[in-house]
Amino acid sequence: MTFGIDIQNLTVRYPGVTAIDDLTLKLEGGKIYGLLGRNGSGKTTLLSLIAAYRKVTEGTILVDGRTPWENEELTQEIGLIRESSDLVIEGENVKGILRRSRRFRPRWDDEFAQRLIDLFELPLNRGVTKLSRGQRSALGITVGLASRAPLTMLDESYLGLDAPSRYAFYDVLLADYIENPRTIILSTHLIEEVSRLFEQVIIIDRGRLVAYDDTESLRMRGAAVVGPAAAVDDFTTGMTVLGEKRLGGTKSVTVYGDIDPDARSVAADWGLELSPVALQDLFVHLTKGDPA
């Protein structure tokens, strides 16, 4: 079972700042989405609204066609694990957190939870306040995945893991997604490592939607044009320029947009080199601050 999400004109204002700015976004169920944004871009606010941790005041959010706010039947099927200490409850140990989760999550899988506990070598009897950062991340992931919620959202919750554990997490996430398809949203600002897991990527910046596309299409949309400065300038006139660098007579301009085969052959004739841009670089260009 999977849930789609339909967000219309969502706005959230905090004193002095607009955290989410008139966001409209429709996500089909059953895919793995990457939600990318810098720190403070509104990722956590957005996910908290979808999970009904916060009330929507402007605009609408529908999950599976229903409003999540104060809808227990729906929210027990929506899992959000934030990087912060949602699961760090004073006086509670790992076993206790798992027991709570089992009670609240109708699709909870004990056997899977145990496998994750073993994988991450989590100490069942240790108090959660005494867990290391990596162990807290691992506990979050265990609860997040073993809940098997039709909408599962992990908000940077795996960033506390060390590299071998992160790769173990990617493997187990993919394997479990294949066996139990559901809608998964992973938010992150570290992209290269995970981008291949995403079917689609959503980039937000200052609460606004900057890009939303298939990961592969998005990746192919950026290009670095390198060659003699004058030719590069001519070629990139009218294109969306994300950045430029110059070294002597050679110039490199990063552009965003589709470059059709005709333009590619023009580039070749002019002695220009076109090369793809890594998703991480594209993300950096698309979300860098306005020049002051």
Binding site: I32, Y170, L174, Y177, I178, R196, L197, F198, E199, E216
Partner: peptide, 17 residues
Amino acid sequence: TNQYAAYYRINPATAAK
């Protein structure tokens, strides 16, 4: 495609494509 996706750690939809 699923075996392939899991083995190379890529999204199954990408492998299917």
